[in-house]
Amino acid sequence: MQLDWTTFILEILNFLVLVWILKRFLYRPVLDLLATRQQKLSDAAEHAQKMCEEAEALRLQYESRLADWQRECENNRRQLHEELALTRTREMDNLKKALAAEEEKLRARNEKLLASRESVLARSAVDKAYEQAAAMLNRMASPQLTQKIVDIFLEDLAALNETDQSALRKAAASLSADSLAAVVSAHPLDQDLQAAIRKALSGAAGQDIDLDSAFSEDPSLIAGIRTIVGECQMHANLADELAFFKRQANHAK
């Protein structure tokens, strides 16, 4: 155990040389390589992190766009449903209105057809009733019935109201050679009855009316007479009464 200064100094020098050699040829290259590798790893990690962030951002963007698209689809679908419902309601209303109009038109047409048919039927019925009544009255007609009707005519003529009497007097006043008074009867009238008619007619007209050649027969009157004084006609026969009833019935229809 002794200290050799030569060895001491040489060991110091040796160690310093070894430090330099190792630093120059081992530590620095290896540590630089490790640093480079670490830097590459850091860069790769940073790049991966950046890519991950970009991917996350893209994912969020995609999800956002998808959500917007779904929201838009939902809005469009809802809008479409609303428009369809509105259109359906409108079309249904139009259809109902058209159906109602068609129904109304059809009903009116039916009613018109029915009315027309009823009118035709009524007219036919009236015609038949007239024909049958006329046929029955023809069978019942007789000079006595005509005389009876003339009697009633004379009574009515005597009780003529002021208006009809005025019209009769006016017509009698306007008599001339072209328009003479005439009395048409269903059956021949005897002299007395003719004289009674002349007298009653002259009395109602307020002047003497010449009826010497005015009497004639028309069997179509069935029974009764038709008196013509100028423009004024007085019907007291069954045919005219039936015709009157027939006109009234047709007019009412």
């Binding site: 050799d4 200064w5 060895t7 001491f8 060991e11 160690f15």
Partner: peptide
């Protein structure tokens, strides 16, 4: 070499 006091002294001095 470390069983020599000269060497260990040199290292300690360093």
């Amino acid at each position: 070499p470390t069983r020599d006091l000269s060497a260990t002294s040199a290292l300690a001095a360093l």
